[in-house]
Design a protein around this nucleic acid. Structure first.
Lengths: 105, 105
DNA sequence: CCCTTGTTTCGACGGGGATCGTACTACGGC
DNA sequence: GCCGTAGTACGATCCCCGTCGAAACAAGGG
């Protein structure tokens, strides 16, 4: 066998569920990731962020965000570039993302 | 002693935290409650909603929403009237509530 | 090739939370 | 005063999830 991760599964726009998105956003670490991605339109490798969790935990969080439809992940060399699915989220839940990002605390 | 619930604790506006709010919203039952409250400005007794959970579970959910700062609860006779804290939420996280309520699924 | 760096997988662990049933309290009406 | 209705408190259960470490994998560069 040996795991070929089948090229990263992402939900289609119409498969994204509000409950899943909220669950994904309702974690401090993931929220920090989302905030960071919000100010990097091009996307970035989450491994560079100072999140205070181990690499394997990071993987778990990014997968949660991806499967919820919050981020899009594309392989690039030895890294994975994550970016916010702003267009999809704004179309489905207009205002949600902006509201979350506007939070001061 | 004998429990006098000390007249229902609510967080002040500036004590409301985005993570706590998202955690509160990230549950199907609570989301249904919020949706119902959104179309009842006057507020309503959540006991009347067809949620498919027991009374004690309902109590738990309403408390979670109240302590997160999502709803305000006031005693009225033998009932408790819940209402959305729209003003506070809109001030803190503009767009969030509307985005959540706009979700078709 | 090997080594390094970034990431994933797996298993284990611990804590939190959604749920329930039962027992209790609080109001209001009769 | 009693009773019924609305809600709360408490304890038990179960399952999910965030976390880690160790081991594996993948891609690039010497």
């Amino acid at each position: 066998m040996s795991g070929m991760t089948t090229t990263l599964a992402h939900p289609e726009r119409d498969e994204i569920r509000i409950t899943t998105v909220l669950q994904a956003l309702a974690d401090p670490v993931r929220l920090q990731i989302v905030r960071a991605l919000a100010m990097h339109e091009e996307g970035l490798s989450c491994g560079v962020l100072p999140l205070g969790v181990t690499a394997s935990t990071l993987t778990h969080h990014v997968r949660t965000l991806r499967e919820a439809g919050v981020v899009r992940v594309r392989p690039q060399g030895t890294s994975r570039i994550s970016s916010l699915r702003r267009d999809d989220l704004d179309a489905l839940f207009p205002g949600l993302l902006d509201g979350v990002l506007a939070a001061r605390r």
